[in-house]
Each structure stands twice: as structure tokens, then as C-alpha cells.
Design a protein around this nucleic acid. Structure first.
Ligand SMILES: [Mn+2]
Ligand SMILES: [Mn+2]
Ligand SMILES: [Mn+2]
Ligand SMILES: [Mn+2]
Lengths: 218, 218
DNA sequence: TTTATTAGTTAGAGTACTCTAACTTTATTA
DNA sequence: TAATAAAGTTAGAGTACTCTAACTAATAAA
């Protein structure tokens, strides 16, 4: 069954909320916020997605993806991350430039294209942001869910992925001297507002709670 | 100025009609046929394209692209042919598979992507169908306009490009044993219906007038 | 448990693109 | 030149997606 760009974006947004929050049941407002539309718009679209059996949902109830819906969502996420990897590995894009273009490329319909791209990139497991790339069956590597915000003062850790792949966030990350696999030492943390002093390659920086929560570490 | 997929397709269709027919002034019905929509739909869209100064046109008059309109159209054709070349050269697609996917990829907006793709492909001048790839400025190599239909009986020629890049036509071309740079001998031609017997690599085939008109030769 | 707050839905409207049917203008032909 | 055919336009409607404003249901607080 052929889906529109819009429908694909709804499914992807649902899957990403579940993936990043761990919560299975999503609300209308939450989805509206993620898609930058009003709750009324989501209510409308839900009727269509339910009709097509891509989501389970009852009036005033919570939204979950059906098996078909989740597979479709993972397909799009797979394409998104493969394209990001392609742009980064083959076309000299930096990691803060790939997301925007991949948002467009993820909607291209061609199974052969995806397969050949996967092959050209030698079947990568992770994209330039450390996010796992679902395989053809829709299977995803279990993700790390420890963030920089969870690291105790005095300990050190290694950055393995970022939760936010927007250009503005990634430019900030780079400014602090961080990239994938960088070592971070948590020097100190303010009790009042959780402002944290971290050390990267001998240089200290102060970062917010929001920043720390968007950095996955081991 | 940001154009919709639809607007881009209208501009591209106009440019392609001019490019392949040589006629500068295009009619509503002609454009409608090319886009597989009704003339009424074209009439509507023309108002918008005129408003945006992409076409010149008066009620009941002929349609021409403005300078801006033509540049935009050539940009899309450039992207289309670069993507076709990419699919063919880097992803093992055959020449009859590339067009359909390129129809989608040509609408991706990213100047950097086009530049880097051009570089990766080492600045190609022609796509897998022998069509010239416009450069960044919108300049196109002058095209050959002699077709197989123009070749005299008894003479031979070489195929340099195809006018139709649909999968069905290209599969037929391959079936006759033809590919770019193949030598063709025109053995005989029926006067009544122009059915032509050609010889390729020692094998004879009969082809129609329509077929012959879609094969560019030197 | 009543009240206030938050979450979610419906109604009605707007934009983009498309269609059919009826019409008008331009071109062709007798 | 008058009749006919072809080309092109307008009116009105439909689908997809979106919004605001007014509403209802569910949840949290008093
Ligand atoms: Mn991304
Ligand atoms: Mn990513
Ligand atoms: Mn093509
Ligand atoms: Mn081509």
C-alpha cells in the first residue's frame, strides 16, 4: 500500500517517540508537538491511519502503531539513516548537515535503491550520529539509554550517540569539542540548575541539563 | 523562491517539449498531454506560474518559459540526469531502471548534494541514455537531432542517445540488441508504413517508424 | 466529590491540485 | 466568408492536508 509523505511522517514520529521515551502509548498532543502541527490536525489524520490499520486507537484513547505501522516506520527510519551515512561517508557532508537532506531522501520509493545503497556503504550498523540502522526486517540493535546527565560527578564516560540530530545542537556539540567516541570527564555539577562542568581533551565547558540529556554515553 | 513538486514538473515538461520538438511556443493541450492531466488543469496552473513570472503567456496564447523559468527547469533536468548517472554508475542499475527513480530524486532540494554528486561522478557530460547533462549555469551541449528514421536505406549509423527513456522502450531497444554506440545498418524500409529492417551485430530486426524516431544517431 | 485543568475532538474554513461539463475563442476547411 | 473543428477557458466540485474556535471528556487538585 502506497503512503503519502505526510502519512509516512506520522508513522516515523510515533516510532521515534516510543524509541526515545520508552513509553509505548502516545497522546495526540505529544504527536502534534513532534510534527509541528495542531492537535486537531492529528485527530483528523488518526482516523485515516486507523482506517488503513497502521495505528490502534479509540476516541480519547492512546495511540500505538500496529505491526504493519511499525514495520513501515522502521523502513523509513532505515532509509533516513542509510542516506545520512551515505552523505557523510561518500559525499563529504558533516554530521550536522546530513539530517535535513535525509528528511527528504527518506521518502524516495525504491527497494532496489535502498538495497544497493546498503551494499555500497558495506551494510553499516550505525549512522553518523551513532543511531542504529534497522535492518531490512526492521530489527534494531538495542540502544544505550544512559545519558551524560546520568554520569556521576568525578566519573568519565564515552559519547556513543546523540539523541537530537538537528544542525543547531550538533554545532553546539562540536563547539564543546565533542564527537563520537570522545572521552568526557564530569568535573562538577550545580545542585540548583544542574549546570555541569565537563572536560574534553583538557578543555572545560559548562553545559545545561538539556544538553546532557541529549548525549548518549557508556 | 521555493517551488512545489508540481510546479517543478510543469517547468520541466515545458523545457523538454521545446528541447525535443524544437518548437519554442507550446500549447495548453500539448502540455496537458505531456503531464497526463486535463487541459483545464493546465489552464489553472498557468495562472500561478505566470504570477510567479516563470512563464510568459496570455489568455488563448502560447506558453514560453521566462529566463528564470528555464533556469529552474534546467536545474531539475540537471539533477534528474545526474541521479540517473549515479544510479547507473555507482549502484548497478540498468539503463531502463534509472528514469523512474530519478523522477523522484530530481525534486530533492540541496545545492551541496548536487555539487558533491557531480564531483563523485567526475563531472559527467552525458547520462546513461546519451542525454546531455546541463552544467551549473544551465548550459547544455548542442544535441544531435538526426534519428534512425532519417538514415537512408543501405547506410549505417551509430546510436548516440535515446529520446524516450521509459522502461518499456528501453527494454525493447535492448531486445533488438542495441545499446549506446552500437552500429546500425538500415537494410530496407517499407514504403507503405515505414517498417524498417535493421541489422545489429549481424542480426536483423523489423522496427516501426515510432521506434526509429526515438533513436538518435550520427 | 465538586471544581479546575489538561487532553482531545468536531465543525467550518482555507490552500494546492485535480477533475468534468459547459462554454468561448481561434484555426481550418468547404 | 460561413460553417465546422480544434484549442483553450471557466465554473463548480472533490481529495488531501492544514488551521482556528468552540466544544467535550478525562484527569488532577481542592
Ligand atoms: Mn536524522
Ligand atoms: Mn541520525
Ligand atoms: Mn530520465
Ligand atoms: Mn536520461
Amino acid at each position: 500500500m502506497m503512503l503519502s509523505f505526510t502519512e509516512e511522517n506520522y508513522l516515523k514520529a510515533l516510532q521515534k517517540i516510543v524509541f526515545y521515551s520508552g513509553i509505548e502509548k502516545v497522546g495526540t498532543n505529544e504527536l502534534a508537538t513532534a510534527l509541528l502541527v495542531t492537535p486537531a490536525t492529528v485527530s483528523n489524520m488518526l482516523k485515516k491511519l486507523k482506517e488503513k490499520e497502521l495505528v490502534d486507537y479509540e476516541r480519547y484513547g492512546k495511540i500505538t502503531l500496529t505491526k504493519t505501522g511499525r514495520k513501515k516506520a522502521l523502513d523509513i527510519i532505515r532509509k533516513h539513516r542509510l542516506w545520512e551515512t551515505f552523505l557523510y561517508e561518500k559525499l563529504e557532508f558533516s554530521w550536522d548537515e546530513v539530517h535535513e537532506v535525509a528528511e527528504q531522501l527518506e521518502h524516495i520509493q525504491s527497494e532496489k535503491l535502498v538495497d544497493k545503497l546498503d551494499k555500497l556503504l558495506e551494510y553499516p550498523d550505525f549512522d553518523p550520529h551513532g543511531d542504529p540502522i534497522p535492518n531490512k526486517k526492521g530489527e534494531v540493535k538495542v540502544r544505550v539509554n544512559k545519558t551524560l546527565a546520568d554520569v556521576a560527578v568525578g566519573s568519565s564516560c564515552k559519547i556513543v550517540a546523540v539523541k537530537d540530530d538537528s544542525s543547531s545542537f550538533l554545532k553546539y556539540v562540536a563547539k564543546v569539542g565533542l564527537e563520537l567516541n570522545s572521552e568526557i570527564v564530569v568535573v562538577s555539577k550545580q545542585e540548583y540548575d544542574a549546570i555541569t562542568v565537563i572536560e574534553v581533551n583538557g578543555t572545560e565547558s559548562s553545559v545545561s541539563q538539556l544538553f546532557s540529556e541529549n548525549i548518549f554515553v557508556v
